[in-house]
């Protein structure tokens, strides 16, 4: 199950999207989530979908990877969609029983919400797949920089994020190893009733916590031994480089917004 998680995974590449400034990608992904709420009819959703698939195409990453990214969330999506279908009133009614109504409005809303979910997941997956965690934190640090005026510890937040992202794969591997080790000693995962299943998580969580703290301690030692003293006086190895392509991407987003405003009903 853990291998299917796409979170924090980065696929190397040299495509258009890979070469974009991480700030542009971050702004783009967030902006996309905002403007998707502008879409309210078929033609606007179609525009959003075409735009998303264009982005995916520009990233040179097979569409299968994105579909796999949606899979773990399919229960949440279906749940929301079914609720929409069953409890929306208005429009032409096809079926009615108690408080449950299946109406044309409901079906339409269900389809739209499904699209909205899938497109948002595609877009955010695209962001993490094409951006190295460290560049992403650089982007966050750079975008949050104005907050320094209000004494927000921007550098510390960015470092925390980058270490957290750096350790996601390490801790996943560790969790799998611990699970296997406990299985070898007879623990059954995912079996029995809910209480038993919750209890069987303990032999994973306790060692995982202990080892995370040990790792943190060792990492802190290693960082200090290499002269880490906090954000002050630090230079940066990675430079963020805003190029023509990023302006182009921003222009595309703007164009999409204008299009949506015109086409929405």
């Amino acid at each position: 199950m853990l291998e299917k998680m796409l979170f924090g995974r980065y696929i190397q590449g040299t495509s258009f999207v890979h070469k974009m400034d991480p700030r542009a990608k971050l702004i783009g992904a967030f902006y996309f989530i905002i403007i998707i709420f502008l879409a309210n009819n078929w033609i606007t959703y179609l525009a959003m979908a075409i735009f998303t698939f264009l982005c995916v195409f520009l990233s040179d990453i097979p569409i299968k990877v994105f579909i796999n990214g949606v899979k773990p969330l399919i229960w949440l999506i279906s749940f929301t969609v079914i609720l929409q279908i069953l409890f929306t009133t208005g429009g032409e009614s096809y079926f009615s029983w108690g408080i449950i109504h299946i109406t044309s409005f409901g079906l339409l809303n269900g389809a739209f919400i499904f699209m909205r979910f899938v497109l948002i997941i595609f877009m955010s997956t695209l962001l993490t797949l094409t951006t190295m965690p460290l560049s992403l934190t650089d982007a966050i640090e750079s975008l949050l920089n104005p907050l320094k005026k209000w004494k927000v510890p921007v550098h510390e937040i960015a470092l925390m994020l980058s270490i957290a992202l750096r350790f996601v794969p390490t801790l996943m591997d560790e969790a799998t190893k611990i699970m296997n080790a406990q299985r070898a000693r007879g623990v059954d995962f995912g079996e029995g009733n809910i209480i038993q299943q919750m209890k069987s998580v303990t032999p994973i969580l306790v060692p995982l916590f202990v080892s995370s703290f040990n790792r943190a301690d060792e990492l802190a030692n290693a960082m200090e031994a290499r002269g880490y003293q906090g954000g002050e006086g630090r230079t940066k190895f990675r430079l963020l480089d805003w190029q023509g392509r990023d302006n182009l991407a921003m222009a595309a987003f703007l164009l999409l917004t204008v299009l949506l405003i015109f086409l929405r009903t």
Binding site: I163, E218, M223
Partner: peptide, 14 residues
């Protein structure tokens, strides 16, 4: 300069 025991836990960069 100091090199520690566990190669995983002293790798700061990505």
């Amino acid at each position: 300069g100091m090199v520690f025991q566990n190669p995983d836990n002293q790798f700061v960069g990505s």
